[in-house]
Nucleic acid binder design. Structure first.
Lengths: 164, 164
DNA sequence: AAAAACTATGTGCAAATGCATATTCTTTTC
DNA sequence: GAAAAGAATATGCATTTGCACATAGTTTTT
């Protein structure tokens, strides 16, 4: 049947919908915030045990799969203010989890590397991250998961300003 | 063909996957963080113009569609620490955007109501929120949007601890 | 090749945040 | 029905955050 699609606001409809018309429970940003809130809460205790904040944890995660990024790029990947990341990196370096290396071609720039201790810290946390991930996808079959991730990838392409 | 599904970790596979095996760009929490980071950045300027922080904006949004919730429930909806929300509400009340009313049946509890000024503030912000929403879904057709939101709803049901 | 514009990172400072706990009330237990 | 346990909200305090700007270096312009 032709039920109105609450996520399509670009059609022939005249007035834009209100949040009440869409409904909080059908508004994707609301749902994504709620879900990510739980994901973060699931990690909190283990992060605290390692002395990690969210930006520090994200930096370790990205560095575990990306070698030697610039701080600016790491800020994009981790969705962290550059100034906040700068201080998070101070702490991670003090903890011996990361190492800052001056970029050989641009003396303003700094590249970042995980130390073995940093990799160990991330590997300590990873099972918890994976468990939180699996928890959110419980009961959702492989096809639906794949479609969901594919949509997320399109969405990131839509919104990102950087080519990374 | 039978390509391994990087989002399914519950099958016959022995070792749990690493983040490198899944790939950052296929790890849903990473994608969701990146996308929500842009959504929030899109709202930032308009929020600042109204003197709103993220918790204050979320409180207005939820109150615009939910009448008289308890503070504790509003904290769940807005994914905000109760203490943070308490102070956000102080500010919203000082701005004349919300009103705290003692619950008639439980004198510990407080119910919250949007004032007309608060509704106006939210309605000022809403077009920006809707534009950011539409931006992330650009080029994604109605069916895919519906499927995506349906998956999000299942995920929220999976992770939420409260019946709201 | 000097000036201007831009880029990468760090820092001062006020504000926001989160944890632990206080306070006040309600519900359960014995 | 008194005591204990639990719940709703607020607050003290240390930490984190974000904005604005400083600093140092690079690229573009003329």
């Amino acid at each position: 049947m032709d039920r109105p699609d609450p996520t399509n606001h670009g059609g022939a409809r005249q007035a834009p919908p209100t949040l009440a018309e869409i409904g909080l429970a059908a508004y994707a940003p609301y749902l994504m915030n709620r879900i990510m809130g739980r994901y973060n809460a699931d990690l909190r205790e283990d992060m605290a045990a390692l002395g990690l904040t969210t930006p520090k944890m994200r930096a370790l995660a990205v560095l575990s799969v990306t070698d030697g990024p610039l701080i600016r790029d790491l800020a994009v990947y981790t969705v962290t203010e550059q100034s906040t990341l700068s201080r998070a990196l101070d702490q991670l370096a003090a903890d011996g989890f990361v190492q800052r290396e001056p970029d050989p071609d641009d003396s303003r720039a700094t590249r970042l590397y995980l130390t073995p201790a940093g990799r160990t810290a991330f590997e300590t946390l990873w099972p918890t991250m994976l468990a939180a991930h699996d928890h959110m996808f419980r009961g959702i079959d492989a096809g639906e998961r794949r479609a969901f991730v594919a949509t997320l990838q399109k969405m990131l392409k839509n919104v990102r300003r950087h080519e990374i």
